[in-house]
Design a protein around this nucleic acid. Structure first.
Lengths: 235, 235
DNA sequence: ACCTGAACACCGTTCAAGT
DNA sequence: ACCTGAACACCGTTCAAGT
C-alpha cells in the first residue's frame, strides 16, 4: 500500500479505491454510530470521503445499500452461529438450536437498528434462506418430520434469527411523580399490580423489571418445549 | 369561500371543515390504497382537498400523523377485540385470549402496512398499554400469578396484538425454471425436501405451502399450551 | 474507469401573508 | 380561526462533463 499523510490516517484514505465492500462497511458503521435515519447517500459518501454521486459506481441505489447492509449483518450472524458451541443436533436438538439462536441474538444486540431493517425487507435474502435451511437440517437431525419442521419455522419466526420481539423500547417508561403513578394504577390496575409485584420481589425498584435476556430465553424455551412435545408425539 | 363546480362535488367537499379526525382517517385510507410510502404530507393534503400546509393546523407534524394513524388502527383493533365472542376467562382463559388475538389479527390483515408501522413505533401508546392491561387482567382471571403474566406478555410479544410474524412476504418465491429449482435443491437441500414433502401432501402444487392462518394458530396454540403448563405447575 | 458539479423532482417544515 | 404561496433545507437520482 502507498504512503499516507497524517490526515489520511485520521480521517479518510482516498488512496485505497472505493469498493462495494468498503461502502457497505461504512454504512454499517454509520448506522451503528448515528442511527439508521442518518444513513443517507450524502452522509454515507461523506463517511467514505467522496461525493454522493460516486457511490452509484459501486451500488445501484439506496435500496441496494440497505440490502447490502442487511447482508453484512447476516454474514456476521452466520459467522457467530457457526462458531457457537453447541452439541450435535442428533444428541440434543434443543440445546443445539438454542445455542445458535442466542449467538444470533448477540450479534443483533450490537446492531440495534438491524431488526427493524431486517423486518422491513420482504425480499428473500439468500443468506436468510441458507440460515433457515440449516435450521430445518438441524430439526431433521433431531427427528422432526419435514412438516413439523415447517411448523417450527413459523412458530419461531424471526426469533430463529435472534430477534428480540420486545414489547417496548426501554426508557421513558417511569411515571414522573406519585400522582401520575396513582393515575396509572387507576387506569391500568393489572399492569400496576404486576409492577408492584415485581417491586416486591426486587426492592431495589423497578430496575430490571424486564430482563430482556431472561425473557428472551423464557420465551425461547417455552417454544422449544412445545415443539419437542409435538415431535415426540409424532406430529 | 367561492362557489363550486361539479368537480368539487365529486372529489373534495370543502364544506365540512378539516379536523384531526378527518385527516387521520384520510391517512389510513391513503395507506390502505397506495401503501405507506405514499403517505406524504403533500399527498395527504391532496387527499383531503387542501394545501399541504393546512394540515399543520390539525396535526403537529408528520410524526403526529403516523402516531394518529396507529391510534386509528389500534382503536379498530380494540373494538374488534371487545366484540369478539369468547368465554369468560375464569372458565377458559386460553379460549378467551385466543379469540381476542384472532380478532385483532383480522383487523391487521385489513391494514397490511400497519404491523410494520406499529413495530417501528417505540413510544408507549396508551391504547397499547390499555390492551396489555386487559390481557394481564384476563390471565389473572385465568389463575396466573403477576409474574407469570409478565412472562406471558413477553412470550406473546406483538402476537398478542395479532401480529403475523411471517417469515417472508408472499410472492416472488417460485424458481423461474427447472434448472434453478435443481440449483436450489442443491444449495438448500433441507428446504427443498420440506417443499417436496408438502407438494406430496398437496399435489395441486406449492400453492398454499404456507397457510398463514393455519401457521398463526399453530404457533399461538403452542405458546398458549406452554403457558398453561407453567400456570398449572404453579410457576 | 472512476469521480464530480449542476440540476431535477421530490420530501418535511417555517413564515409571512391572505381571508 | 383557518388556509395559502413562496421559500428553505434536506432527500435520492440523472446526466453531461471532467480526469
Amino acid at each position: 500500500m502507498s504512503p499516507r499523510t497524517d490526515a489520511d490516517e485520521l480521517t479518510e484514505r482516498p488512496r485505497v479505491p472505493l469498493s462495494r465492500r468498503r461502502v457497505l462497511r461504512a454504512a454499517v458503521r454509520l448506522a451503528d454510530r448515528d442511527g439508521l435515519e442518518s444513513l443517507t447517500m450524502r452522509r454515507l459518501a461523506q463517511e467514505v470521503g467522496v461525493e454522493a454521486m460516486s457511490l452509484y459506481h459501486h451500488v445501484a441505489n439506496k435500496e441496494a445499500v440497505l440490502d447490502g447492509v442487511v447482508e453484512v449483518v447476516l454474514d456476521e450472524i452466520m459467522t457467530a452461529v457457526r462458531e457457537a458451541e453447541a452439541p450435535p443436533p442428533e444428541r440434543d436438538w434443543r440445546a443445539a438450536l438454542r445455542a445458535r439462536i442466542l449467538a444470533a441474538r448477540d450479534v443483533l444486540l450490537r446492531h440495534r437498528w438491524a431488526p427493524g431493517l431486517l423486518g422491513a425487507r420482504t425480499t428473500m435474502n439468500p443468506v436468510v434462506i441458507a440460515y433457515y435451511d440449516q435450521v430445518v437440517g438441524l430439526l431433521r437431525a433431531g427427528g422432526f418430520s419435514f412438516d413439523l419442521a415447517h411448523r417450527a419455522l413459523h412458530v419461531l419466526g424471526s426469533r430463529a434469527l435472534g430477534f428480540a420481539q420486545e414489547l417496548f423500547q426501554p426508557g421513558e417508561a417511569q411515571p414522573a411523580d406519585a400522582a401520575t403513578a396513582e393515575q396509572m394504577a387507576d387506569r391500568f390496575p393489572n399492569l400496576a399490580g404486576m409492577l408492584a409485584d415485581a417491586v416486591h420481589d426486587d426492592p431495589d425498584g423497578t430496575l430490571g423489571f424486564c430482563d430482556d435476556q431472561f425473557e428472551f430465553e423464557f420465551a425461547l424455551d417455552l417454544i422449544l418445549e412445545g415443539l419437542e412435545r409435538r415431535r415426540a408425539a409424532g406430529a
